[in-house]
C-alpha cells in the first residue's frame, strides 16, 4: 500500500517556497508533512498532503515543476527508539533507503521513505508485522 508524495523542484530563490506553499494553501491542500532536500542551487520539496492529485494539478497549472511519487509510509508508536527499530529491519534486509523523514501527531508517528526496491521493502514490512499507512489513514492523522 503505497501513498503519493508530492515533489516540487524549486530553485534556491527567496520567496519561491512560500509561493509554492501558498498556491497549495489557496486551494485547501493541507500539508501533513514537509521536508526539503537541497543543494547550493536548487531543492526538492517533498510533501505529504490530504489530496496529492489535486495539489499536483494545481502546481502544474501554475507552472511549477512538480511530480507525484510513490512512497511507503509506516506507522510507529510515538516513543523512543521506534524509528531506529524500523531502520534496523531495513538494514538487516539490506534494503537501502533513498530518503526518509518522519513526523508525529499526539501519540501517533509515521515514517515516510523511498527505497530502491519497493517490493522488497513491502515484504520486509509485512514479515516484521509493521503497519503501513494508506492515503486515508495519513489524512486522518
Amino acid at each position: 500500500m503505497l501513498i503519493k508524495q508530492l515533489s516540487i523542484f524549486l530553485e534556491n530563490k527567496s520567496g519561491r517556497l512560500a509561493e509554492a506553499l501558498s498556491t497549495l494553501g489557496d486551494e485547501d491542500i493541507n500539508i501533513k508533512a514537509l521536508t526539503i532536500a537541497d543543494t547550493a542551487e536548487f531543492g526538492i520539496v517533498r510533501l505529504i498532503v490530504n489530496d496529492p492529485e489535486k495539489g499536483f494539478n494545481i502546481l502544474r497549472e501554475k507552472g511549477f515543476s512538480a511530480n507525484l511519487v510513490d512512497v511507503i509510509s509506516i506507522a510507529t508508536p510515538s516513543e523512543c527508539g521506534s524509528f531506529a527499530k524500523v531502520l534496523k529491519i531495513f538494514s538487516d534486509e539490506s534494503i537501502s533507503i533513498e530518503y526518509i523523514y518522519g513526523f508525529s501527531v499526539a501519540d501517533k508517528a509515521a515514517i515516510v521513505l523511498r527505497t530502491e526496491d519497493t517490493d522488497k521493502a513491502i515484504s520486509a514490512i509485512r514479515k516484521n508485522n509493521m503497519e503501513m499507512l494508506g492515503a486515508s489513514e495519513i489524512s486522518e492523522l
Partner: peptide, 15 residues
Amino acid sequence: EVDQKFFLDRIGQLE
C-alpha cells in the same frame, strides 16, 4: 529548464 516529465524527485538524478 528541467522537463516536468523527467523531474522525478531524486537529488542524485538532477545532479
